[in-house]
């Protein structure tokens, strides 16, 4: 490990060469939009919201999975990036069925917050209206695929923190879907410990507690950071 200096949005800063652009930027007060990234679990680099421009590179890089290096010049908020981010979030809305006004996570949803942050006041892409399942077989929780943005936060927290690995993705492309175990109802899952970590880690109203009405599901994924800190203190 060594310390490197770089420039983000014209600001000089330094970071360790085993850190990614996202974390170095955040340590220096520069926020980059993210959805699949979650402190406390591994990076996945799937949502592409954190795309940034690196001078000298023709392609865009995901800040959450790109390590900083000496002399790097990064731009995080150009007009081109804003356009791509808008399109990505619009696609998330059109690929599912999101009706915020009656959603359990209304006003407590990272996707909804992101649409606001990116100043999306309508969806310009065509809606797909896919027919998706709601799995209410679990005693405590419900999975509503209509609101799932396939960020895999639930998969990673269940696998890496709880050690159960109940969730996974089946299928490819537009047919990708979240499944529990071998595509069984969640309630029949032999691996799920009912710990609820996936529910807290989910950025949207796709995973929620039974009995919650519209707007009542408030989540807090910060428990992961506390777990990390506790682990560090112990070792």
């Amino acid at each position: 490990m060594r310390v490197v200096t770089l420039k983000i949005n014209g600001q000089e800063m330094s970071g360790r060469d085993d850190e990614d652009i996202l974390h170095v930027a955040r340590e220096h007060g520069i926020d980059i939009p993210t959805l699949c990234q979650l402190d406390g679990v591994s990076e996945w680099g799937g949502c592409r919201l954190c795309l940034v421009e690196i001078e000298g590179s023709p392609k865009l890089s995901a800040a959450c999975v790109t390590k900083v290096s000496e002399g790097m010049v990064v731009n995080t908020n150009t007009e081109r990036l804003a356009g791509y981010r808008k399109s990505i979030v619009e696609m998330l809305f059109t690929e599912g069925n999101h009706v915020c006004s009656v959603c359990v996570s209304n006003n407590n949803c990272e996707l909804q917050d992101m649409s606001h942050e990116l100043k999306i006041d309508h969806i310009s892409l065509p809606y797909r209206y896919p027919l998706k399942e709601v799995d209410a077989s679990h005693d405590l929780f419900i999975f509503d695929a209509n609101r799932c943005i396939l960020c895999t936060r639930c998969i990673r927290v269940c696998d890496e923190v709880e050690g159960a690995h109940t969730w996974d993705i089946a299928g490819r492309g537009i047919k990708s879907q979240l499944i529990s175990d071998l595509h069984q109802p969640w309630g029949d899952s032999p691996s799920c410990t009912s710990c609820g970590k996936c529910v807290e880690a989910c950025p949207t109203g796709a995973l929620f507690e039974k009995g919650k009405a519209a707007g009542e599901m408030v989540k807090d994924a910060r428990f992961l950071v506390y777990l990390e800190e506790m682990k560090e203190e112990k070792s």
């Binding site: 069925n97 009706v99 915020c100 006004s101 009656v102 006041d121 309508h122 969806i123 809606y127 209206y129 896919p130 027919l131 998706k132 209509n146």
Partner: peptide
């Protein structure tokens, strides 16, 4: 703006 609640029937 989004078709909201009426769009619940769409799928």
């Amino acid at each position: 703006v989004t078709a909201n609640v009426p769009s619940l029937r769409n799928p």
